[in-house]
């Protein structure tokens, strides 16, 4: 069983605050999901090897060249000096 504490912990590291309703129904729903994926644990541990990674050759990688496009992707919440305003740190 996934505990309430565990869900709180997951919500904390995922930076999500849950509504009251969610906090109420998530434990059961997530528990069912985890129960469902628990079947994976039946696989022997030598089945944990990752073999399916796509490959790319070194020569195909991007050359070290600067290409700046004109338009800047951040346009809102900028100070006069050009800093982006974010929430306070402390």
């Amino acid at each position: 069983m996934i505990s309430k504490d565990e869900i709180e912990y997951l919500a904390k590291i995922s930076k999500i605050s849950l509504t009251e309703d969610e906090a109420k129904k998530f434990p059961e729903q997530l528990d069912k999901t985890i129960e469902y994926i628990d079947i994976l644990d039946e696989l022997a541990s030598d089945h944990s090897i990752i073999l399916d990674l796509q490959e790319i050759k070194f020569d195909e990688l991007r050359d070290d060249v600067v290409r700046m496009s004109g338009a800047l992707p951040i346009t809102r919440n900028l100070t006069e000096e050009g800093f982006l305003k974010g929430p306070k740190m402390k």
Partner: peptide, 26 residues
């Protein structure tokens, strides 16, 4: 010359904030 995962300048020093950026590094 460029950043690790995009083609913005690797030398970010002495530039106005948020001008050495692109969609990828943002």
């Amino acid at each position: 010359e460029s950043k690790l995962f995009c083609s913005c300048r690797g030398n970010y020093r002495d530039q106005r904030p948020n001008t050495n950026i692109c969609e990828t590094c943002c």
